[in-house]
Design a protein around this nucleic acid. Structure first.
Lengths: 157, 157
DNA sequence: ATCAATGCAAATAATTTGCAAAAAG
DNA sequence: CTTTTTGCAAATTATTTGCATTGAT
């Protein structure tokens, strides 16, 4: 599994912190490196685990206090899959309009973009008297490969 | 505010209960009447309040135990707006494919359907090797009326 | 009668917060 | 030095569950 490179997004987040006169501390650094070092969707608990690999001392509270900064910056998006906890998606800096397919067979989350859907969303919103700002499209699906072969090569690690 | 009439859906839920050999009790009746007597999206706490208007004795636990039955029947859908609690939507029996626009100005949730979007979702899913089962599209928007006039006639009660 | 359903109160689990100590600018 | 940030532990909040009892079929 290769490390993701969201270095542009990381840089933008550092600027975000500077702009707000917020400080770059050790724990924050560990959290930032973890977030912008993956393309996976993660929970607060995942992030705590990853950050602690870089800095043993990172506390759960700091993770929970840093997540709102990340979403406020617009570089990470909070997602709800109807589970008991929230997921966070670090791929919004590169693909601000992407959608998700959640596979019911293997649990994998696949991202895709569609200019056509985005356009329809805007048209419909306008027709209803709104001006669309953000959208969240999640498709729950089953895997065709799994249906035919009984196994799924997309299976999440 | 007129009472909604989801009597068809209510009937279908009663059949669902019967099919599973589940019993129609007083508290359940109060909950069912509340759910199928509104078109509003509601939380577990809302539902408890409404049900208690009909039957003082309904407990929070019974509400929480009945909600999964309602979603399992397919007549009510669980929704996540990224808030701290889940919302439930009683309008799925009539409009199984509808989507939501959430207004950032007044908080109102507007429903709409789009055959075109549904079709695109299916096409894209297929292209990616999936078979779509359900979709959840939420658009966050601002109200044009509010932007121009500073007030919003859609404002939620 | 039988077994599902209930209310209550205690238990969970994710997230938040008060506070005194540590560290950044 | 001043103000933010931290870790810890306790608090909060939505939801779930064990259990003895009640109620529907």
């Amino acid at each position: 599994m290769a490390e993701a490179d969201h270095s542009g997004a990381r840089q933008r987040f550092l600027e975000f912190l500077a702009r707000k006169h917020l400080r770059l501390t050790g724990p924050r650094r560990a959290i930032i490196e973890s977030v912008f070092g993956t393309e996976k969707h993660f929970t607060a608990e995942d992030l705590l685990k990853w950050a602690r690999r870089r800095d043993k001392s990172v506390s759960r509270a700091t993770v929970y206090r840093t997540l709102p900064l990340l979403t406020e910056s617009g570089l990470v998006r909070e997602m709800d899959f109807g589970q008991d906890h929230k997921f966070y998606d670090p791929n919004y800096a590169e693909h601000p309009h992407h959608n998700h397919i959640i596979c019911q067979d293997c649990g994998k989350i696949v991202e895709f973009e569609s200019q056509k859907i985005a356009q329809l969303e805007n048209e419909i919103s306008r027709r209803l008297g709104f001006s669309a700002n953000a959208h969240r499209l999640q498709i729950t699906a089953t895997c065709e490969e799994f249906r035919k072969l009984g196994v799924c090569s997309k299976k999440e690690a």
